[in-house]
C-alpha cells in the first residue's frame, strides 16, 4: 500500500427525491508517473491509482479510468441524481492491488 493514502468525500446528508447533488472526492496519493528518475538515474516505478468508481445502492454512478498524467492527490467532482435514500460507495484501485473504500449515506426526505 502506498503511504499516506486517505480517501475523503463530501456528500450532502439530505436531499430531495430526484435532486441533482454535487459530490466531491479527493484521495491523498503520490501518483508517481513512472516517468521520473531518482538522483542515481534509476526510474522511479509507476505507482498510481488507475481506477475510481462510485456506486449508489449497487448501481454504478461513475467509473473513471485514470492515467499517469494525473497529478498528485486526485480530485473528482461530479453530479448524481438521488432517487431514494441509500449509500454512495466509493472505490479507488491502486496499481499495487490495494483497494481503498469509503461510503457515505444520504437521506431522501
Amino acid at each position: 500500500m502506498a503511504q499516506g493514502v486517505r480517501p475523503r468525500v463530501k456528500v450532502p446528508r439530505k436531499a430531495e427525491a430526484g435532486e441533482i447533488i454535487t459530490i466531491k472526492t479527493l484521495i491523498s496519493h503520490k501518483m508517481e508517473s513512472g516517468q521520473r528518475k531518482d538522483s542515481d538515474g534509476n526510474v522511479i516505478p509507476r505507482s498510481i491509482i488507475h481506477r475510481f468508481t462510485c456506486d449508489f445502492n449497487g448501481q454504478n454512478v461513475v467509473d473513471f479510468k485514470m492515467e499517469p498524467a494525473i497529478s498528485t492527490n486526485p480530485y473528482f467532482e461530479f453530479e448524481a441524481t438521488v432517487p431514494e435514500s441509500g449509500e454512495f460507495k466509493f472505490t479507488w484501485h491502486d496499481d499495487d492491488g490495494s483497494v481503498y473504500e469509503t461510503a457515505k449515506k444520504i437521506e431522501v426526505a
Binding site: 499516506g4 486517505r6 475523503r8 463530501k10 466531491k24 479527493l26 491523498s28 492527490n73 480530485y75
Partner: peptide, 12 residues
Amino acid sequence: DFDNSGMVFVDI
C-alpha cells in the same frame, strides 16, 4: 476546506 489541498497536509 474540501477544495483546499493544503488541508490534506493538515491531516498528515
